[in-house]
Design a protein around this nucleic acid. Structure first.
Lengths: 248, 248
DNA sequence: TTAGGTCATTTAGTATACAAGATGGAGTGA
DNA sequence: TCACTCCATCTTGTATACTAAATGACCTAA
């Protein structure tokens, strides 16, 4: 176990808390409140927040208190698009440099995922699903790629927290397994296709559901607004007129 | 012109200086020396340095003075590999959402590149070559992608500074033009291929030459060492023996 | 002459002080 | 009741102070 700097510790703690939805999107993150439990000054908290901001996990700047980010729908799509591109490359590299130890490592990870799924521990399942992707990235031994993939996967976890169904576990162990199978067979293009498909499915599960909370507020409101206006139109002329005046 | 924060100003100034080789790899970047010309305290300089570090342009941490980074050969290859993957995706997106205005923009950029090349202004040429890639990324309107591509292109400029020939202008206007031509024709896969090929050539120009300066020091020395030892073996037994003792 | 050691100087790590801007609530007038 | 203003408080932006580590020069001993 290598020792972390104190700023690094805070960074990881916050990141984990955000990813695991202990800190939901929009949660305020005041500097001294964060520092207190760790007994560190705002200086170090600030460093951690800055990194999280550049990871896209918190919104900060312009003297407002930092908050857990609320990625917009379009930003979320952007993230997934880049993630797909990079994970395809991950698979190509892993396939090109395949060793049987890789197979062993991946298999043992899949077993953990299965186990977690059986016990039904949601939190562990979600964490392992993310770690599968990061493990693959690590197999490339390309630190640049590892770094970017880690960032994107974290960001996707946040997106899932925002838009996903409450209990939307990734439930994707089989999809993961398909990727590994293709890798084992040495079928590069099939592996790439499986991965691409899998990430697309994750995206669909994350984004195609009804919004549970968050940035689509205006959309939700305008839907309700038109319903209400429709009711009013059939109900009471008086109220309807007032509504019209207000809009003017 | 939007106003930048003071930290942002320093960040950009340093980045530009590094990319344009005004600050060569290994140059020390002491915090107060950097802050002085801008009249800002170390606090803000520190923020700028932290960002540059996460961009891979400076090495810092562990109480040593920050320096302009010296990417290793393997790190450089990693950067190029990720860059290729992302730029392929850029081309796909731009091709999918092609408009004739894109053509106009790109064409006018190519003209600038031609002009710069004729006047022989190296610095401008290199800068424009990098901007071509960033312009393409911007056409995707995907901020995540823009961000990553910008980082990677900057990093490649640094790599070129380290490993490239002294006067290795990119001299790639034609390669850029080929990409644009394919885009105009709507030939997506051809455009992707042209871009991939172009980036590969940039990499080859950057990395296949002799090392001019830098991290391969140990390799250079060991080459010289063996030459010298060979000479010694044929020349003087005495010296050779001393050499052997020293190694023990 | 050179290897190693000691000390002064430089420079980064971290906390804190202070100013300025954001936030939220009480009070006022319609 | 509602909207709006003003003030007290909280929170951030930035500079600075203090500590401790790194650096480099000089000096000593073999």
């Amino acid at each position: 176990m290598k020792k972390l700097t104190r700023a690094e510790t805070v960074y990881r703690a916050l990141r984990q808390a955000i990813i695991e939805q202990d800190l939901g999107p929009g949660t305020k993150l005041p500097e001294d409140e964060i520092g207190a439990p760790f007994n560190i000054s705002r200086t170090l908290v600030r460093q951690a927040l800055a990194r999280l901001q550049s990871d896209g996990l918190v919104e900060a700047g312009g003297k407002k208190t930092a908050t857990v980010a609320r990625p917009s729908l379009s930003e979320s799509k952007d993230v997934f698009r880049v993630r797909r591109a990079l994970e395809r490359e991950v698979i190509r590299i892993v396939a090109e440099t395949w060793t049987s130890e890789n197979g062993t490592l991946l298999e043992s990870h899949l077993n953990k995922e299965d186990a977690a799924r059986e016990t039904g521990d949601e939190r562990i399942s979600v964490r392992l699903a993310a770690e599968f992707h990061i493990l693959l990235a690590e197999l490339t031994q390309n630190p640049v790629l590892i770094d970017y993939v880690t960032q994107l996967v974290s960001r996707c976890s946040l997106i899932l927290a925002l838009y996903g169904r409450p209990h939307a576990t990734d439930c994707a162990v089989d999809e993961h397994r398909n990727v590994v199978i293709a890798l084992r067979e040495g079928n590069i293009e099939e592996a790439v296709r499986q991965m691409d498909h899998h990430v697309s499915l994750v995206e669909r599960r994350a984004l195609n559901d009804d919004v549970k909370n968050g940035p689509r507020l205006s959309e939700i409101l305008s839907r309700h607004a038109s319903e209400i206006q429709a009711e009013q139109a059939t109900d009471t002329i008086a109220i309807h007129e007032r509504q019209v005046k207000r809009q003017a």
